[in-house]
Design a protein around this nucleic acid. Sequence first.
DNA 1: ACCTGAACACCGTTCAAGT
DNA 2: ACCTGAACACCGTTCAAGT
Lengths: 238, 238
Amino acid sequence: MATSPSRPERRQEPLSRERIVSAAVELLDTAGEGGLTFRALAKHLATGPGAIYWHITGRSELLGAAINAVMTTTIPGDDTDATPQEAIRALALGVFDAIEAHPWVGTQLARTPSQSPMLRVFERIGRQIQVLRVPAAAQFTAASALMSYILGVAGQNAANTRALQRDTDRTEFLDSVAAAWAELDPDEYAFTRSVAGQLRKHDDREEFLAGIDLILSGITARRGCHAACTPTTRGPDS
Amino acid sequence: MATSPSRPERRQEPLSRERIVSAAVELLDTAGEGGLTFRALAKHLATGPGAIYWHITGRSELLGAAINAVMTTTIPGDDTDATPQEAIRALALGVFDAIEAHPWVGTQLARTPSQSPMLRVFERIGRQIQVLRVPAAAQFTAASALMSYILGVAGQNAANTRALQRDTDRTEFLDSVAAAWAELDPDEYAFTRSVAGQLRKHDDREEFLAGIDLILSGITARRGCHAACTPTTRGPDS
DNA sequence: ACCTGAACACCGTTCAAGT
DNA sequence: ACCTGAACACCGTTCAAGT
């Protein structure tokens, strides 16, 4: 394959922010969070570690850029004729799937609180909350609750996947946790023991969606009375 | 203060797992997650780094023990004559306060999924769910949703506190975020802009509790019909 | 402007050697 | 049994020097 001699010859692609970030994602996917090293990344790009610093400020910017790259490609576009509930579920599943494909994202997502990738999700959840006719004063709470729930599941999924890396199978892993739960002290862990069976046969995805539905129920149930109809009023403890 | 000469003299307290862990908590509180170093910890305990390894396996066990120590002292005991909702709120606030006092806990909590400190919280939330007469098949989902929400807020709070460390004031920080939101593209971030004002005057604690109440509403509203009365059935997208 | 790679100031962890 | 601290194999980041 001869390259046109008129163009400046390039033995290899020149370094660029884009190439660095996509190599970082690849490294994170294959070697995990601890595998992303400037030295390993430099070797992957056939250069020295210092070269990367010309394009990127440091490790945390690199991680942020990697998360951004993954999130923007995975989050689904708007489906115009979906109900608000369906749209929110699709959005949530987008985040869920991104973390299933790239477990390291789950750990890092919470670290970018009011920043780019999750802010876009927040915005789109919020719009659906508005479509649901939640009163203005309760919209922030509703969207925040959904976001926090999604981020919480994200973190736990990431942790589970990491713990699962040595175990062979996903169901085998759930079985071992369920078995551990079933052996807990019956007095101290009566509830946990009682749901151990449900843990064994549950589907992570379905469980995640069930939680979303639960919160959506709360949002629509309390529509129009967000301050007035608290189940029990918060008062002095005595 | 003379020590009895019959006992073996101790120039300093002997090393122990307990002393190491409490020194680690102190170090984490003052220097943050990055400040916990075996060398720094050893200096704090007036010994060499190798000594610590006689009592603790490694860094991750040390972090886990530190979290455990903080969580067990902060989570409130059972208040026997509280409503289930009040008990769950008290529990959730216990976790919230632990993270406010020790921000590094928030980042690490999710990493211990089915493990000791959060499992105790899960158990006690679950018991209250049972008191609420949620049908058995829906109990796991309800308790899990509350846990995920709590862990999600925990992670975000930890991230916020870290970002806040250089800023002077908490309200000043919220103001700067709100100001940033207000300057976003009106087309792309219409919702986010519209709630920027609520962010500025909101109280983290109240907001957190409002989210708990929202989920509790969902749990009680759907009591007895967890599978049947989904707002809109999940079906094929087309 | 962009790349190179040695060098600096750190890490967690191990382990022979001491008491 | 328990502690010591030098040593090993790493890190992220910087920076003079090259092209």
